[in-house]
Design a protein around this nucleic acid. Structure first.
Lengths: 343, 343
DNA sequence: GTTAGCACTCATTCCCGTCGAGTGCTAACA
DNA sequence: TGTTAGCACTCGACGGGAATGAGTGCTAAC
């Protein structure tokens, strides 16, 4: 199913126009705007062909055309021009990255925010689980008269508090025992038996009831499924698009963006290597059938993997989004390398 | 400006009705619904009076009446019936609280969520700053080849990571030195000089460049203004109300609810003791002039203070919201006391 | 193969008449 | 004197055309 050069140009012009206006595009607009040197009548003939081939849709007889899912797909695969991101945006991005990033989680969250800034669409970014990173240290600290705080350090820091009384000295001794057992283990390797072991050796100097409470909490904290962190940025931006002028639709979409379970599924979906678009009905989620996603999988040198997804209307500015994700991925890679290798 | 009993009853009936329907209320509806034994004509006369007195507004000549800000105010102050919260909701609340709460921050966040559940409106809750709680412990942990994590425990846990290499032993020695200086201090009492003191004693065994990086980061982490945490729950609920059928308005409100600075101001506003409503134009924020807030200040035994605010349309179900906040405040107080005193 | 011309389609807009909910006023009633 | 029935009036909401105009498909001529 090859398209003539002319058809390609016309299709491209129609989609470019539609991306900007969200209004069906007529033949006259194209014949005037592009300097193809063709009359509207000729364009009409070509448009009729493109419609028959499935790339365009006519909402009703006397309206212009809008791209079909296939039209967008062809556009993304073959027609899209390279988008040039302004130097000031690049500079801004770099300075943002340098100033703010100190911790992996923050980096992830920040990357999502930057993508949303650059593209002006909603972004969803999932942070890598860290269930493979070993326990570096566990700390037990008395923070208030009746409260003991447990702090478990892996690649991240988790903490929980228990309502028992324990002296500073008791905390220290307990922490030592815990570390002896747990330091170096992977969280998922920790079992009830491991914990029982600690209990036996700590029985001497801590009341049974308090010890039970603390160790129960420790077990929960250590084995708690490392939640896949998911950050949504700029969800409200959807309200800017006429596609969501209907409050019903907007509400449904915003609920979707609030639903961690669904977003997890979204982040877990297979979208292949590199940067890829999923257009309209190509999406598995009912609610996204009138939207498009552009996703980028990433892996960190430390092994974690996650996904950055941009969500927008089907007529999103694909080239800009692709370029933005590309830029972000490059800059962050540089940054991570710098931190890892010190060079 | 006294109202006769009859006028009060009529005003109450009108507001109750309007809260449910969001439609202007006519005289016939009232004369039929309430068993006042009055004809619509009489009601009309009374309504005309109430309008003249400023409690009601007529959107246009042949429409029913809606309450004015003053009408709502009078309703809240004098007319509102007590709302009876169902036993199942109470039981649910109790079990939720017991199962989930382990840490102050979580408690706060959870209280906001529960308020939103009970009332079905948006809630904003601010968590107390903890800049008055002393530093219990500081930990230094090497987590990856080039990363050292700093963990500062006050009533909360803050952490940051630095990109330097440091051996496990080095970490431990450094941690000891840091704790010797900082443990027991209030974060705001820590100065550059305090840090310099640590530097001097650690110079021996850590490279200067690495030490500088770590201590800089430590200083930042310790003195970082304890952000007033603010949690917004159920922001999208506003889309359910005809008041926000216009996407423009909805967007403005959602932007407002996304704007931490504005929410901080909201949380800082003086709303007096106990539970209080702020109705329509009584609000300082332009965007809230068609909405109402019900706010409750809380203080914790540990001294922290914050505010829970419910945001809804002016015709919100005030009695339900008041009752819900009252319930939450009681239950949480019980819970906190239990934790503090163990009884 | 391209284009000018023309008839045709159809969503959008505006106008206008009708409908009905609700009011205010008046006069009669208890 | 307070209450009520009755009635004229107001005004937004709704619905049916008519007018508008953007855009098409087709045909015939270049």
């Amino acid at each position: 199913m090859d398209l003539s050069d002319r058809k390609k140009k016309i299709l491209q012009a129609i989609i470019d126009e539609y991306i900007g206006t969200a209004e069906p595009v007529g033949s006259r607009a194209i014949s005037k705007k592009e300097n193809l040197g063709l009359s509207s009548a000729t364009i009409r003939n070509e448009m009729a062909d493109l419609e028959e081939m499935g790339y365009l849709i006519q909402p009703h007889t006397s309206a212009g055309r809008i791209p079909s899912d296939e039209g967008y797909r062809f556009y993304v695969n073959s027609l899209m021009r390279d988008y040039k991101i302004g130097m000031d945006a690049v500079a801004q991005l770099q300075s943002m990255l340098e100033s703010r990033v100190s911790l992996l989680d923050k980096l992830i969250r920040y990357a999502g925010a930057i993508a949303s800034n650059l593209t002006e669409y909603t972004t969803v970014i999932s942070a890598p689980k860290d269930d493979d990173s070993e326990i570096k240290k566990v700390d037990v600290v008395a923070v208030e008269s009746h409260t003991v705080m447990l702090i478990v350090v892996t690649r991240r820091v988790r903490n929980a508090s228990v309502n028992v009384s324990l002296s500073g000295e008791g905390c220290e001794r307990l922490a030592q025992l815990i570390n002896k057992s747990l330091a170096g283990m992977k969280p998922r390797g920790v079992t009830r038996d491991t914990i029982e072991g600690i209990k036996d050796s700590a029985k001497g100097f801590i009341k049974d009831s308090a010890l039970d409470k603390i160790l129960d909490c420790l077990y929960d904290t250590v084995t708690a499924d490392a939640e896949t962190e998911i950050y949504v940025t700029n969800a409200n931006s959807i309200l800017r698009y006429p596609e969501f002028a209907d409050v019903e639709k907007a509400r449904d979409m915003l609920s979707f963006l609030d639903d961690r379970e669904k977003l997890k599924k979204l982040a877990a979906a297979d979208t292949g290597e590199g940067i890829n678009a999923t257009i309209g009905k190509e999406n598995d989620f009912e609610i996204l059938q009138d939207s498009s996603l552009v996703s980028m999988n990433y892996t960190l040198p430390s092994g974690g993997a996650g996904k950055l997804t941009v969500i927008g209307p089907k007529r999103m500015n694909y080239s800009k989004v692709f370029a933005s994700l590309d830029l972000i991925s490059n800059e962050i890679e540089k940054l991570v390398n710098y931190y890892m290798n010190g060079s």
